[in-house]
């Protein structure tokens, strides 16, 4: 049975490698996640930025292992700044949440052509930042998470 197990592990690795190679969309960027606990319930607060060929996205995601009273964010800012220190994109949202839930996500989608740098300048950095909100009964937690790319 041991040889069977090894062969299937090898197969899985090879298959996943082939699938990744054939992927049509490449997104540069990444995310940052902070975890914590509120009244014994573990939560995760995540920010991300991903750049695609014709557009880019930024997200704020709050999740918990079970339902809590309020889950979301108190404020969330997304921006892109160019090498001349001019903002190509800026957005701020406040107080978005779900009640009696274990999940909340907000995503911004931004077109490269519409929000471009001035001629001669390039993208310096793109960022997703702000305070999440996790509320259970009368206990609140507002972890701050910031992800900047690159």
């Amino acid at each position: 049975m041991k040889s069977k197990s090894i062969s299937f592990r090898v197969f899985t690795i090879v298959f996943l490698f082939l699938v990744i190679l054939s992927g049509e969309v490449i997104a540069a960027g990444g995310s940052k996640t902070v975890s914590g606990s509120i009244s014994g319930i573990t939560y995760f607060a995540e920010k991300s930025v991903y750049t695609y060929t014709t557009s880019w996205t930024a997200s704020a995601k709050s999740s918990a292992i079970s339902n809590i009273s309020i889950i979301g964010y108190t404020w969330w800012t997304v921006y892109r700044i160019c090498t001349d220190d001019v903002y190509a994109y800026y957005s701020r949202s406040e107080n978005q949440s779900n009640r009696n839930s274990n999940y909340f996500e907000d995503i911004k989608w931004i077109d490269h052509y519409q929000y471009s740098c001035n001629p001669g300048y390039f993208v310096k950095k793109s960022a997703s930042l702000g305070n999440h909100q996790f509320t259970l009964n009368s206990t609140h937690q507002y972890p701050y998470v910031e992800y900047v790319y690159p």
Binding site: T53, T54, T57, I107
Partner: peptide, 10 residues
């Protein structure tokens, strides 16, 4: 050129 996103975006 097409970008396909991992999950739908509102």
């Amino acid at each position: 050129y097409s970008d396909v996103f991992p999950s739908p975006i509102r």
